[in-house]
């Protein structure tokens, strides 16, 4: 849409995330949220920072490329989107989304929620947004982080918080009816789009690091890059990374333009980025040798994210099945080109 704006956002977020030092997450989050970068892509009337999905994808891309543990996908991509779709405002502080739907009931006019909800980053969150089913109503509801729900902490392969929140009649702070089409499938698709962007960015980080490493590292009296076997590995890596990037970007564009076939685009992109993660991580580690296996090297922060994110919001098998199901009603080639027949 607006290439200049995106370039500016990329530069600003990169500058914030580039700074190293103590409590990287806390400082990065503070600076991102002070600058409003954590809510880009969420309309201003919903308390967001405005901008479109393309701008939001830039923020998520940079954070994933740098492997900085900040929940930009969970806040703007998921929580902000849910709230804005339901006409609610984003509360101050960190607001993250539940991946599961809560059960709701009304008691004395108060909406109370129960259920076991997977909530990435719940331990750090000021508020949690969840979809909820209450009698015949589909709702979007907000729970304060300190509302007394039981928190079971857990981490994914990259050590990112993947917590479980156990609610037993917790009172919602706010709620609204979910608009038509906003359901568990839509949330899964939205998360899959975010993870596609993140996977592609992490894959790009592996390529950049591998390229630098084979150029600088010398063995047998010459840089690794002088070996044909290494060059072939690097080219295969570049091909896979480019495939992941193109699929993620094309899916973002399809959703941003509200294409009739955006669902196919997201399914294909998450399948491509998830399936590609294996080869990217494998070649990346192979090219970095034992050095890349050390926790002191940056590579592990990226490859563990590739392995974690490919499973989240449906791995490639999930989305392969999804595409196969879509083919029950449509012929193969029109599905690929996004045409009705």
């Amino acid at each position: 849409m607006n290439d200049d704006l995106r370039t500016e956002i990329r530069a600003a977020v990169t500058a914030i995330l580039d700074r190293r030092g103590e409590d990287r997450t806390g400082r990065a989050w503070k600076e991102l949220s002070e600058g409003g970068f954590h809510l880009i892509g969420v309309p201003e009337e919903a308390g967001g920072s405005g901008g479109g999905l393309g701008e939001l994808a830039v923020v998520v891309d940079v954070a994933a490329f740098q492997a900085v543990p900040v929940p930009v996908a969970e806040t703007a991509f998921l929580a902000g989107w849910l709230l804005a779709r339901a006409g609610l405002s984003v509360p101050a502080g960190m607001t993250v989304a539940s991946l599961d739907e809560a059960r709701g009931h009304r008691q004395d006019g108060v909406l109370r929620l129960s259920g076991r909800l997977r909530v990435p980053w719940a331990r750090h969150a000021g508020h949690i947004v969840t979809m909820a089913r209450c009698a015949e109503e589909n709702l979007v509801a907000v729970i304060p982080g300190d509302a007394g729900a039981e928190l079971v902490t857990a981490e994914n392969l990259a050590g990112e918080p993947r917590d479980l929140l156990v609610l037993d009649g917790v009172a919602a702070a706010a709620s609204a009816a979910a608009p038509p089409g906003l359901d568990a499938t839509a949330l899964l698709r939205r998360g899959a789009l975010a993870r596609s962007v993140q996977l592609a960015a992490a894959a790009r980080a592996v390529l950049v690091s591998a390229r630098r490493h084979v150029t600088e590292r010398e063995q047998f009296g010459r840089p690794l890059a002088r070996f044909q076997a290494v060059q072939q590995h690097l080219a295969a890596l570049a091909a896979q990374v480019t495939a992941m990037q193109v699929s993620a970007q094309a899916a973002v564009a399809a959703v941003e333009h509200e294409d009739a076939d955006a669902a196919v685009a997201v399914a294909a992109a998450k399948a491509t980025t998830s399936a590609g993660a294996r080869q990217v991580a494998a070649i990346g580690h192979q090219l970095h040798g034992a050095l890349g296996y050390s926790s002191e090297h940056h590579l592990g922060a990226v490859t563990t994210r590739l392995w974690a994110w490919r499973e989240e919001f449906g791995n490639e098998s999930h989305w392969h099945d999804h595409l196969a199901t879509a083919l029950h009603d449509r012929a193969w080639w029109p599905l690929l080109t996004g045409d009705a027949r």
């Binding site: 480019t242 495939a243 193109v246 699929s247 094309a250 196919v264 685009a265 399914a267 294909a268 992109a269 399948a271 491509t272 399936a275 490639e316 098998s317 989305w319 392969h320 099945d321 999804h322 595409l323 196969a324 199901t325 083919l327 193969w332 599905l335 690929l336 080109t337």
Partner: peptide
């Protein structure tokens, strides 16, 4: 077979986007 068809479909979709680019 459906799952593998879905896998080839995802690859073809991405290749088509790349070819278009």
């Amino acid at each position: 077979a459906e799952r593998e068809l879905g896998g080839l479909t995802a690859r073809a979709w991405t290749l088509r986007q790349m070819s278009l680019s």
